[in-house]
Design a protein around this nucleic acid. Structure first.
Lengths: 138, 138
DNA sequence: ACATATTGTTAGGATAGACTAACATTACTA
DNA sequence: TAGTAATGTTAGTCTATCCTAACAATATGT
């Protein structure tokens, strides 16, 4: 049931979840635009996510997340956000830079390293707040 | 001339460089073992690296790096080592964990984020040395 | 409700990466 | 040096991802 997703499918799932939270619905074309892929590629990805039981979806049908899909999406988003915080707050990357790196790394970092980054970020933002980065001259 | 390599080809190139530094020569099978791929896959990768002018290589021939190949390999290895340091020293990951994460992230992290990680690691290892990790209870 | 625009799907093709199995070459060793 | 083992190559296949172009369904505006 819960075989690991590819990076690509994780991106689709994540995009679906984020979009639904903001707009309550998603269409294939919304996802296509967000991920900068064709509508055809999106259809294909939706089929796969559906087969894996992560979204409810049928031909010309509305898209929604299943329980499993939502749980998994939340995990991915959580990783994304933690990485974003780390890059933005701790390393002082720009918004876009932090987003880009978080987007890529969220799919490949190990759970242990992720935990360490979260702990690290928490420790430092508590201790130094936003001023931290300025201390080390990047 | 210098189109960007895929993550996979970067891995091959890196492995070749590291192996040559230790043993002065490499064979396809050495690479295959290091990267855990078949000899056939290695042959294919060698052809591509050769086409891109990064290695000297012909059928049943010895493998060596070109000037360009060596330069590029060094850059990748440098990124790898810096990421390893960050995970091992700053976050306190185990050797294997640090290696694994460095291996994956080296191919996708942005140059800017890489610079920040290097600066960060230097700052902290100077300031706290190996004792740093213990302070934040990971 | 009908024409048009938008969105979704399918078919077909490309690229990258990996694999196995069969075969070619090279290296070792008795 | 002959035979075997090790290594390298090729051919053919697979999966994942993306694309375009053509077509199907739905939504919209008058």
């Amino acid at each position: 049931m819960s075989e690991k997703l590819t990076s690509s499918l994780e991106d689709y799932l994540e995009a679906i979840c984020v979009f639904i939270k903001k707009n309550s619905t998603v269409r294939a074309i919304d996802i296509a635009r967000i991920l900068n892929v064709s509508r055809a590629s999106t259809t294909e990805a939706l089929k796969k996510l559906s087969e894996k039981g992560l979204i409810n979806y049928g031909r010309y049908d509305a898209i929604s997340l299943t329980k499993n899909g939502e749980e998994l999406a939340e995990l991915i988003i959580e990783k994304h956000n933690s990485l974003y915080e780390f890059f933005a707050k701790v390393l002082g990357s720009s918004h876009d830079e932090a987003q880009e790196n978080a987007c890529k790394i969220e799919h490949i970092i190990s759970p242990d390293a992720m935990r360490r980054i979260v702990a690290f970020t928490n420790y430092y933002s508590k201790k130094y707040g936003d001023e931290f980065v300025k201390k080390i001259d990047l």
